[in-house]
């Protein structure tokens, strides 16, 4: 087993996640797709901790931090979703265009 297989898998998952995040219309799904992208990155970190230039436990520590931050992000994202839903009664991304000038 080489590092390439893991990196390619991570790249594929990241591309799929990004695709979903940019095309899906449901805000919940967009959030989930972002989680998928974070997972792909975590996979990279862990792969590097075993096969990297300086293989060490540090990669795993980093992935732990990353998971923690992802959890925080998911919590805040969902809270914003709920708040928006309460105001606009929709979870469609295209209805959230308050930034339009």
């Amino acid at each position: 087993m080489t590092v390439h297989a893991f990196l390619l898998l991570a790249a594929a998952l990241f591309a799929l996640g990004l695709f979903g995040a940019l095309t899906k219309r449901n805000t919940v799904i967009v959030l989930i797709c972002i989680e998928l992208m974070l997972n792909a990155v975590n996979l990279n970190l862990v792969a590097f901790s075993k096969f990297g230039v300086n293989p060490a436990i540090t990669g795993q520590i980093f992935s732990l931090f990353s998971i923690t931050v992802a959890a925080a992000e998911a919590a805040v994202g969902l809270a914003i979703l709920i708040a928006l839903y309460r105001n606009k009664a929709t979870v469609q991304v295209e209805d959230m265009n308050e930034m339009k000038g």
Binding site: L18, A21, L22, T23, V30, V93, E94, M96, N97, E98, M99, K100, G101
Partner: peptide, 14 residues
């Protein structure tokens, strides 16, 4: 392009 859709902006960036 400036339609206020975050996803469009993201797509542009991507």
């Amino acid at each position: 392009l400036q339609n206020g859709q975050v996803q469009t902006y993201g797509a542009m960036v991507g």
